[in-house]
Simulated assay, not measured.
Amino acid sequence: MTDIHPTAIVETGAAIGENVRVGPYSTVGPNVRLADNVVLESHVVVAGHTEVGAGTHIFPFASIGHKPQDLKYAGEETRLLIGKNNQIREHVTMNPGTSGGGGLTRVGDNGLFMMGSHVGHDCKVGNFAILANNATLAGHVELADHVILGGLSAVRQWTRIGTGAIVGGMTGVEFDVIPFGSVIGDRARLAGLNLIGLKRKEFPREQIHALRAAYRDLFDTEDGTLRARAEAVAETAADQPLVKMVTDFILEKDDRRFCTPRSGE
């Protein structure tokens, strides 16, 4: 049964699924779709052209779907699509897209967005993302699956962070982070691989060893460009799936800059 508190406001036109709970003083706009088993605690605002996937739980004072924080936004109809089984904690903000970024902000499934974290306009966030308290994504950021952002970290606009990467707390990420990379520092530097995450995902030991060897070939030398080294590694380790994910990420675009280790580390 759907349970809408008497003090909540659900505007005409909103689509509400089965077993949805809308708590006290929450508001749901006319172009919002809440799938089955969504829970809005008290004082939640869901606005704009926003879809919230089944089983997602949104906590007090979250602001979901209000217009993007972009001065170029002129009121065009854009969307925010949130997947299934997310935990969206207190004071989280998520904005829809803009016409300059494709008009869509997309959040995947099974994410944990801790207190005060922010997903900016036109972001693409994968599945199983974890944004710790006050982690911030500027516009057009891409997070692949299983990315973890530490508390008070910030990711610059248009940056990509690859699968399984981890960003330390209070780290500012200016450049792309390779899959399974671990970055730290006031301005992010690559500090190795997320070995704990790799082991927790139970990747075969031989694949992890191959990835560690590829990491050394990519970053423990300054011979040639990173792109040239990635091309060489891609040829010699074409049968290694984890290595291929890293080299494909580096070679996908030729105009990118990447977080790399600090000289001498």
Rank of each mutant, 00 (worst) to 15 (best):
R33P: 02
F128P: 00
V38C: 05
L104T: 14
A15I: 15
M245C: 10
S117E: 14
R106L: 13
R216P: 02
A232C: 06
V45N: 04
F61V: 05
A35E: 15
I9L: 13
D70G: 05
I88H: 10
H140Q: 05
L198K: 03
L143K: 00
H91N: 14
A132S: 15
G151P: 07
A228V: 01
M94D: 07
G164D: 12
P261E: 03
I184Q: 14
P179S: 11
T7N: 09
R205I: 01
P261Y: 08
D223S: 14
V233S: 07
R160L: 11
N95P: 00
K201Y: 07
L80N: 01
S117M: 10
N95Y: 12
F113D: 02
L81F: 08
K84H: 13
A228Q: 14
I148A: 13
N127P: 06
H140S: 06
M114F: 09
E174T: 11
E252P: 02
V246T: 07
V183N: 06
F59A: 00
I82K: 08
R21M: 13
Y73W: 13
V119H: 01
K72F: 02
Q157A: 10
G150M: 10
V10D: 08
V246Y: 11
F203L: 11
G75W: 11
R212N: 11
I166G: 09
D220V: 05
T12A: 14
E76Q: 11
G103D: 03
K84M: 09
G97F: 09
A129H: 04
Y215M: 09
E206P: 06
K67V: 14
T136A: 15
P241L: 03
E18G: 12
P261C: 10
G172C: 03
A232Y: 04
R187F: 09
G139S: 08
A228W: 04
V243T: 00
E252G: 10
P68I: 01
D122A: 13
A154K: 08
L211R: 04
L80E: 02
V28H: 03
T247I: 09
E202D: 13
Q157N: 14
H146I: 06
H146L: 12
G55C: 04
A47F: 09
V46H: 09
S26K: 05
G55L: 02
D186E: 14
I196C: 02
G29N: 11
R89F: 01
V107R: 00
E11H: 15
K124Q: 14
V177F: 00
P204G: 04
E142F: 08
V32P: 03
T50M: 06
V183H: 02
V32H: 03
Q207V: 05
G83M: 04
